[in-house]
Design a binder for these strands. Structure first.
Lengths: 227, 227
DNA sequence: CCTGTCAGAATTGGATCCAATGTTCAATTG
DNA sequence: CAATTGAACATTGGATCCAATTCTGACAGG
């Protein structure tokens, strides 16, 4: 069991609706890593991946290169690619980045938010209340946060923020395991939305910081009691 | 004149001291883009690049993929790669990211800094006073900032910060053109180092924020008076 | 004179083949 | 018996070749 059998299902469902084979491989592999189906430390053999995807080794190589640039795997010349390990330190690292980026994005976004975004954010919160699947939950959580940020006229900052939020998906499973799916800190989310709606930027940022801090603490505690 | 003749000199001096051809092409192209030798909007023809580097098209393709992931060029399927344009909006975007990341990195680093780092930072400041070449200046500036951050036990945050500092190199030429090379805000740098040495974190962060804000304003003004 | 269409050229995406490097394991020697 | 060396194997890096897509420009039709 090398993790490739895990991939088979994902590959089948992803279908061939991508522009290029490289994009197909890249998107599928990233989803597999972020969702935890490909665990940290898994070595990725180009030949095997090519066979699993039904393409040649070349699009696999290009996809691996891009995933390396996204820090999702470690690439050593002539040795191969390995899925980046997750750890307590890495989780703390990711949270430090989110704690830096997201308050900035929120601050720059709030003046430009409209009822359109507020409505979408509220809808997403309701969807999250109903959602059971952890994978979908990560997607909804990411979209809720990004909806509040996306009015900021800073595309690169937004792209960075979204990429970090995606990285966090790798830890969401542990987070849910630690706290139970009941409260994904939905009160924090609703308070933050209310503060943004009232254009109370300092309060919204304060809630966001607390939200991230408690989440980071939860994860740290979870990692602590299992070495 | 397609910019490739510009590359020839860089390629020659870079030599073959890289692990792989892909790494060689990637490093050289990135340096050429960041230093401005490859201007924004330049289309990158794989065949021409391969000929210029003396390799086949394949390492060029892989290098382009990685540079795309670093947002240094735009990649459109079946159309090709184009060096990302720089603009006032993009500059403001980059500064917003630096303003978010660097204070966080500095805050996390200051408690762990030792005399080793302080000494290196001071040396770098002296080197900057003596430096004439704009390219080297960017390198020194980046290393000075990173020296003050690198004690933070957050490798991913540091990698992100360094990559953003590199992106800023593309704007350094304009910055120097606008203010003159005499003062790269060396007073700010010295004050920041002094505050860090005194473990006065709030003050160091305050100086850093002001440093970045004035730099951003200088660049914005420069862009404003030339469309 | 303008516009739409179609054919040829240019360019990139993908596959296969060969070369270079790293790893592993067994045999030999101290 | 342990350490070391070297040879065979596995895996990745690079080159060449073929296929798919897009752009260019000319020509016919309105």
């Amino acid at each position: 069991m090398n993790g490739l059998t895990e991939l088979a299902a994902v590959i089948a469902e992803a279908g061939g609706r991508h522009r290029t084979a490289t994009a197909f491989v890249e998107a599928t592999l990233r989803a597999a890593i972020l969702s935890g189906r490909l665990a940290g430390g898994t070595p990725l053999r180009q030949e095997d991946l090519a066979a699993a995807f039904g393409v040649s080794r070349m699009p696999v190589r290009e996809a691996l290169r891009q995933l390396e640039a996204q820090a999702l795997l470690d690439f050593v010349p002539h040795k191969g690619a390995v899925v980046t390990e997750i750890s307590a330190a890495d989780a703390a690292d990711t949270y430090a980045i989110r704690m830096a980026l997201e308050p900035a994005a929120l601050t720059l976004s709030i003046p430009h938010l409209t009822e359109v975004e507020f409505g979408r954010a509220a809808d997403l919160l309701n969807d999250m209340d109903a959602e059971e699947d952890p994978g979908r939950m990560g997607e909804l959580n990411r979209r809720f946060h990004m909806t509040l940020y996306e009015a900021a006229p800073h595309p690169k900052l937004l792209a960075l923020t979204e990429s970090q939020l995606s990285s966090f998906d790798r830890y969401l499973r542990f987070h849910l395991a630690a706290k139970g799916r009941e409260h994904m800190s939905q009160e924090d989310h609703r308070d933050m939305l209310a503060a943004a709606r009232a254009r109370d930027c300092p309060r919204a940022v304060e809630i966001l910081r607390g939200h991230l801090a408690t989440a980071a603490a939860t994860l740290a505690a979870f990692f602590a009691l299992r070495g």
